[in-house]
Design a protein around this nucleic acid. Structure first.
Lengths: 167, 167
DNA sequence: ACGCTGTTGCGTGCTGGTCGCGTTTTGATA
DNA sequence: TATCAAAACGCGACCAGCACGCAACAGCGT
């Protein structure tokens, strides 16, 4: 699962994901040291699933370096977030999920089936403008998901109202 | 948002929101039994602060019935939520906050100072309509707060960008 | 190659909440 | 009003997710 840390970014279909080397450079610029564990966390973020939890990142890291400790992953994520390299998001009641700051986006999560939809950038715009104009409040709507019912579940539950599962 | 449910109930001075008696009736209608602890939880919700956590409700309940156990409060809140009497909301990283379902509303929380603003009902409307039309997604944007920067903090931090505290 | 200091592994602790169990209480029925 | 099954309770153990203090280790400027 780990092709060479080549410099060029050959595209991932859904976007411009940075390479590990670029992120490592960000670390150095920020004055942080580059360690094995830290590099592996970045690698897992770049190449792994879309919304990994700290736990999932730990598993990915341990696949290559079995002795990395959970608290190391937590501390690294904290530091990476401080440097603006990653952000974390809460999609529901469980653990936070992490992604690269360059991929920041809003999330819609279905209360019924748990499906996660990445919100189009402009979906929040009207609300953000309204909040700014009327309350002076600058929205940053990326940190918590917005819950709701996805199209599939809405169709299925016409007439029957299943218990929400994410709430 | 609160019809004068004061009906026959020999009033709590506060008058406003639903009375404990009305809520108790909802419990009975739902097939649940009415116990001392349960009634006290409802009383705390009706008369207490605006966004109490389970812990704060426990304190309020214990002020009148010192032997009520924390798990009782948690279980009651769970049951009350199942019956649609209360809802819970996450305003930040800490404990959930509870309020009566009749008072459900969206929340804007300042990442910097933690201030909570109750969102005007229609603030979410444009976004909800957009999500419905474009994604078939029915928003229920009340469960997680939407983060941002409040007017005061935005003014203060012009030029300097303090670390978010709520994230 | 050295040494300063950031980082790690490890254990321990905390918060917020859940669960199983034996006992008490509720409220429908007699 | 007494009876009694089932609901709810008190209690403690336990869980997930994460934070922390410390001694040992390792990155990187010199």
């Amino acid at each position: 699962m780990l092709p060479p840390g080549d410099g060029g970014s050959h595209g991932y279909p859904w976007g411009m994901s940075s390479t590990v080397d670029e992120l490592v450079a960000q670390l150095r610029d920020g004055g942080s040291r580059v360690t094995t564990a830290r590099r592996l966390v970045l690698t897992a973020l770049v190449k792994g699933a879309h919304h990994p939890t700290a736990e999932e990142l730990l598993v990915a890291v341990r696949a290559l370096a079995p002795d990395v400790h959970a608290s190391t992953v937590y501390r690294n994520l904290e530091e990476l977030e401080r440097l603006g390299v990653v952000v974390h998001t809460h999609l529901g009641h469980g653990a936070a999920t992490y992604h690269l700051a360059t991929e920041a986006h809003g999330h819609l999560v279905c209360e019924v089936c748990g499906a996660t939809v990445e919100a189009p950038e402009d979906l929040f715009e009207a609300m953000a403008q309204g909040a700014k104009r009327r309350l002076g409040f600058e929205l940053r709507p990326y940190h918590f998901a917005v819950l709701g019912v996805c199209a599939d579940c809405a169709a299925l539950s016409d007439g029957a109202d299943p218990e929400p599962s994410v709430g």
